[in-house]
Structures are given as C-alpha cells and as structure tokens.
Amino acid sequence: DSCIQFTRHASDVLLNLNRLRSRDILTDVTILVNRQQFRAHKTVLMACSGLFYSIFTDSHKCNLNAISLDPKVDPEGFAILLEFMYTSRLALKESLIMAIMNTAIYLQMDHVVDTCHRFIKSSD
C-alpha cells in the first residue's frame, strides 16, 4: 500500500479561502471594530481564535451575521491578525506590535501572543 502526501495542500487550501474572502464569496459574518468593518468566514475565525470559537459555538450567538468587538480593540491590529488567519503571515510593524499583541490577547490567540512576547524581548 502507498500514500501520497501533498505537502503544500494546507497552504493551497488557505490561499483559496483567502481568495474567497477577498471576493466576499460565502463570507458569513461582518466584524465591527470601532467604525471599520471586516467580512470573514466564521469557520476560519473560530479555527484561529478562542474568542470567536466561544461566540460561534454558543447556540444563541452562532447565527449572528455581525459582531461588534470591544471599542478598545485597534482596527489596524485586528486587520493584521485577520490577514494572519488567512495567510499564516503576521506583519509586525514596530509601531503596531503592542496593538497586535493586545488584540491577540483579546481574541485569545495564545500562540501569537507568545510569539509577540518573544519578538519584543528579542528586539529590546
């Protein structure tokens, strides 16, 4: 017996999901961060964020098609983390590192928080 492992399958799937997002195909939720709006797929959000997992597994909230985040959340930080969810690439601009880390804490993305901590310590 044999098995063929397509080593780039995960990244090919993620790239297609990001193409669907950019064309607003089958997106099913709008995330409101202060006055900015972000369209996304609930499944991708809950796969990447503990907060969204809690929201969309709650039978009273899973059918919402718009979610407002806490006003303390920085829209730029959220945009960078949303891009990370769909690309695996985290853009770390010096001026935004704290906003990104605080947003990752809020979204319960612990591994990203740990990586940001290590990045800050190494750049100190």
Binding site: D1, S2, C3, I4, Q5, F6, T7, R8, D12, R23
Partner: peptide, 21 residues
Amino acid sequence: YEGVNTIKEMGRSIHEIPRKE
C-alpha cells in the same frame, strides 16, 4: 498512516481560485 509507504508530492494539490472572475 503507520507502515504505509508515503510518497511526498511537492506540487500544487488543488485548483487555484482566481483573484476575480
């Protein structure tokens, strides 16, 4: 897949969704 002979395919695995139709 214990005990199965695994062949690694490095090429693309699925179609690429275009940026726009």
